[in-house]
Amino acid sequence: MSLEVRLQSRLGDFEISAEFAAGAGVTALFGQSGSGKTSILKMIAGLIRPLSGRIEAGGRMLFDSEGGTDLPPPQRRVGMVFQDARLFPHMSVSRNLTYGRWAGKRDSRADFGRITNLLGIEALLDRYPATLSGGEMQRVAIGRALLADPALLLMDEPLASLDQERKREILPYLEEVRDETGLPIVYVSHEVDEVARLADTLVLLSDGKVLGSGDAVDMFSKLEFGPALGRHEASSLLSGTVSHIDQQYGLCAVTLDGDQRLYIVSDRVAVGDRLRMRIKARDVALSLEAPSGVSVRNVLPATVRSFARDESPFVEIVLDISGQALRARITRHAFDALGIQPDLPVFAMIKSVAIGQRMLSGRK
């Protein structure tokens, strides 16, 4: 399944011009409030009509201004999940789940038992929304969207109304939906943690324009997008496999793609798990020599790929760690003292405690 979007629109004085393409998995529309994320999502759903452009999902043309195609929302086979669950309070969970396909008059091919098992809501079927937690309600809302037999799933900041505990509860289920359904999922968020954990493709938006789009790991490593991602949130996404768990010290060894080893603190992983880890640039220190007698458990040989220096007190650096990109932010004073230049071999130091559990995700 694939999604192709090219559209132009004007909402009052606000102009939107967006073009991007994505395949199965999660495409994150990321940007600050007012960047046009939700408006683009509503255009894909058919709730707002663009001035011009085209939207194609899974080989079906949903909108084409030149060809005269503009399918109404019920015919677009789009599942929509909003910030709030929008469940019917007078209906049981079971009836809420099947309402979408009944209202859309669809003979859904989605298996009811498989979806409820996937989302862990089998025990909730006879309950009513008033008795559910926020996380449970959102899981039911996602199930309702999936059971309506969508060709495309749209999520408009589905975790925004949840507290941190509820977010931790529901994120693994979102990963299961991403990995098991094969649907293109367009996910709107302004939370870097969510994007880093879930996204396969990242579309970076600002003032209604696409600054860039592509593989999420690559996008995070590009220095030119640092300001849009947020200076304090600039990060790298490293991938690897859990190879050993030290129960005595509570440390997990992750063998990175490229064979270097990274130690993290987590009680939620098992040997063999594939992980994507988010490491903030401000948590990476550099040394010209392999340090000894330090508390930092992660000392990784690296090579300087590139850097961006401006009038701020900091310099952004991209390192190569056995083929993966790692960002570091150091002061201009340290940059000059170390003599940083492209292809310089260095050692990157990362505290294990800096890779928090909110920054971990299982990847199949």
Rank of each mutant, 00 (worst) to 15 (best):
A57H: 05
A57S: 04
G58L: 06
G59T: 09
G59K: 08
G59H: 05
M61V: 15
F63R: 00
F63E: 00
S65A: 13
E66A: 14
E66N: 12
G68P: 08
D70L: 15
D70A: 15
D70Q: 13
L71I: 01
P72M: 11
P73S: 02
P73E: 05
P74C: 11
Q75N: 14
R76C: 11
R76I: 07
R77E: 07
V78D: 02
V78R: 03
V78N: 01
G79N: 09
G79V: 09
G79K: 10
M80S: 06
V81D: 00
V81Q: 03
F82P: 02
Q83E: 14
R86F: 12
L87Y: 12
F88W: 13
F88K: 10
H90A: 03
H90V: 04
H90T: 04
H90Y: 00
H90D: 03
H90R: 02
M91Y: 12
S92G: 14
V93A: 02
V93I: 06
S94L: 09
L97H: 01
T98G: 01
T98M: 00
Y99L: 15
Y99G: 02
Y99R: 13
G100F: 01
R101N: 13
R101H: 14
W102K: 15
A103G: 00
A103R: 13
K105A: 11
D107H: 14
D107Y: 03
R109I: 03
R109H: 12
A110D: 07
A110G: 12
A110Q: 13
D111K: 00
F112H: 01
G113I: 01
G113N: 04
I115N: 06
N117R: 13
L119A: 06
G120M: 11
E122M: 06
E122K: 08
L124E: 05
L125S: 07
D126L: 03
R127L: 10
R127N: 02
R127F: 01
T131R: 15
T131P: 00
T131S: 15
T131G: 13
L132G: 06
L132K: 08
S133I: 08
S133W: 04
G134W: 08
G135P: 02
G135W: 02
G135F: 06
E136V: 05
